[in-house]
Every structure is written in structure tokens, then in C-alpha cells.
Simulated scan of single mutants.
Amino acid sequence: MDMSTRETSNQIHDDASSSMTIKTDDVVPWSYLNHDVISLVMMQLGVIDFLAFSGVCKSWRSVARSNWKTFMTSKPPMLMLILPVGNNDRQCWLVDSEGKEFRTIIPHSAGWGCVGLTCGYLILLRWKTYDFWLVNPITRHELHFPPAPCVSDYVSKITSVLFISPSMSKLVFVILASNQIWFSIENEGGWNFVSSTFDFTFKDLHVFKGRIYSVSNKGHFCELTLEPEPKLTLLKTKSLLDEDVSFRELVSWGENIYVRENLMAYKLDFCEMEWVPFQYTGDENEVAFFLSDLSHGAAAKPESWGSEPGRYVVFEGGGKGRFFIAVQWYFPHECLNVNLLHDA
């Protein structure tokens, strides 16, 4: 190899080495990544990793906030436990579908019991005074409502809904206890009674498409309106669930509302105003029902969620639908999804 050839070869090698060398001054921070790319990555995370993701930097936190509802809606229910961790505190322990854990302390929560769940808020009841404290374990947001006149030591079950009234521009908390319905408006104090002349027992409350509905032990379907005066209106259905059952619950997903009783479910056909038995067809994208001891279940689409032996029991087939059972569930898809109530 002559001198000119050697020089040319060396120059090519130097140029190639130079082109493959990355100067430290040219490294781009993670926060400078394209937001569309960040969003794609974020949507693949579990809820626990999402919380860590949102705390990396201001840019990532901004992406997380703008995609919060979309992300939470896409995630399956999480197992939940409320455990004492000291004389004054309780701990909320959430486990996602991948087995990852999130634990948060609820300070000064001794003397309070968790009696339900609404819009991602734990509903805590103080046993001595019967006032309510709503805490979102993920966002840490809190709401307080005064002692309710229908709650006592003898109340075995409390169901409730939380929503925003457009005319009041405030949050409204509605509870059903001792077969009485009361509601309290945020920061106004006191409770308002919803009178009724019906002689049946109300079993549940549910907000669906901006309306509040209730169902009775006999399957009567009612709509609750608060303005101009609080009242219950009976909605006539062609098929009435005649049998008196001890447990009946309203849940919804997408365009449908269901009434669930134990391991049976019925979907309401609003066009015909008829309750239709829900049949599970085996489609993995079909709606499933999640049962817990918190007097609050939910319907959701399991899609490709994997079951974990020992964590919950699955009943399916035989026309009963699919039911996931656990002591307590937490529903990310309801988190901060406070319904806007339609004007009456």
C-alpha cells in the first residue's frame, strides 16, 4: 500500500470514527422527548408505574395529566385492602393486575370505617358522629360532609353516589341508608331528604349518562331528580324482576346499564324499557362484573387481563355472565370521573 492509499484509508477510518462518536454535550434530556412518543410509552404502563412516571419531571407530569382520564379508563380494577398501621392511621393497599403494589397512609383515620367507594374516593364514616370523609388514595384529594341523620349503629349497608350539579356548580353527595335517600351539597352543610310514597325497599343508587337511578328489592326502576324539588319517579318496564332478592346492584359500562343480583345480571333495553338477561358469549372483550364487600361493584371489559389464582374467583358460562370476586376492588376507570348531572 503506497503512502497516498494509506493516507486515504486513515482518513476514511478517522471520518467513520468521528461520525460514530457522540459528544456528551449533544445528549438530549429525557424531558425533551416528543410528547406523542411519551404518551405511547405511558399508555403501556400499569397504574403503579404511571404514578412513578408522572413524578419524573414537569414535562412528563404534564403529559400524564393531559392523558389521565384516557389512561385510567384503560386499566383493569385493582385489589384493595384497608389495614391499620398504628393507633391513628390506616393504610390503603392497592395491587394492580401485574401484582405491583401501591401503599398510601390515610393519616388520623382511626375511628373511621370504609363503607364504600365512589368516583375513586374511599367513603370513610366516623363511627361516633356519622360524618363522612371522602379520600382519593391516588390523588390524595379529600371531601368532607356533615353527620347524616339516616345513619346509626344499626345501619348495615350504605350506598352512595357523587356527582356535579351544573345548576349548583358544586359536588353533591347522595346516600341511601335505612331505606332513606338524603343528599348534601359540598361546603353548604346539612342534609336534604328525598321523600317517597313507594312501599318497596330501595337497594342501590347509580349515576348513568347524567341521570341518577335507583332499583328496589322487587326490581322497580326509578329516576331520582333533585330540582326543582327532590323526588323519585317510577319508570315503567315491560319486564319486572318480581322475585324479592336480598342483594341488587346497578352498574354500567359504555352505553348500557345493568342490574346485578348475586351471579345473575340483566341489561336494560331503553328502547323497549325491558330488562334482558345478560348472556356471556365467551368474547374476551365482553363486559364483566366485579363484586366486592364494599357495597360497590362495577362493570368493565376484561380484554386480555390475566387471572391470578388465589387473588379472585371467576364464575362464567351457563348464562350467568362473568363475575370477578374479591373482598375489595378499586376501580381506576372511575377515578376522578365525577359525573356531570343533566339539568332536570
Rank of each mutant, 00 (worst) to 15 (best):
R65P: 01
D199A: 06
D14R: 14
Y121R: 05
Y32C: 14
F278E: 03
S292F: 05
Y258N: 01
D36I: 08
T201R: 07
M3L: 08
F208N: 06
L176T: 03
M80K: 08
Q91I: 06
T70I: 10
L79W: 07
S109C: 02
S17I: 02
L340A: 14
E142M: 10
S246E: 15
T197Q: 14
I175H: 11
R322I: 00
A16G: 01
F208P: 04
T233Q: 15
K75C: 08
V85R: 14
E303K: 02
S216K: 08
W112F: 14
S307K: 00
Y121V: 01
L33P: 09
M1R: 14
G113R: 09
G86I: 02
I164Q: 13
Q11D: 13
C92Q: 00
D343E: 15
K157P: 00
S214K: 00
L45T: 09
M1K: 14
R126K: 08
F331V: 01
D26K: 04
M20D: 11
Q91N: 11
T118W: 04
G120V: 00
E316T: 06
F145E: 03
S307Y: 08
V115H: 05
P277C: 13
S4E: 15
R103F: 07
L294H: 03
T159K: 10
P137I: 05
Y312K: 00
V259Y: 03
V95W: 01
F324L: 13
L134T: 05
N88D: 13
Q180N: 13
T129Y: 15
G254I: 05
S152A: 05
A16C: 07
K58L: 02
F173P: 06
F289H: 05
T281C: 02
P77D: 08
T5F: 10
L341E: 05
L40D: 11
Y330E: 00
R90C: 07
A300L: 03
L234D: 11
Y32D: 15
K75W: 07
L40A: 04
S246N: 12
G321N: 07
R322C: 01
H206D: 00
F331H: 09
N217S: 15
D26W: 06
L294I: 00
Y121K: 06
H296F: 11
T118L: 03
I82S: 08
G219V: 02
S152F: 12
I106Q: 05
I82E: 05
G318I: 00
C335R: 01
V194Q: 07
R61E: 05
M168I: 05
N34C: 14
A265M: 06
Y130D: 09
E303R: 04
I175K: 08
K238D: 10
Y130T: 04
H35T: 01
N136P: 10
S17Y: 12
D153E: 15
I22Q: 03
E229K: 08
Q328I: 00
F173C: 05
R65G: 12
I185G: 06
M273S: 15
D131K: 08
A299S: 15
S160C: 11
K157D: 07
F50A: 11
Q11K: 02
D14E: 13
A344L: 03
S169K: 14
Y312H: 02
S66M: 07
G190N: 09
L51M: 10
I212C: 10
R90S: 12
S59V: 04
V194Y: 08
V276F: 11
S214I: 01
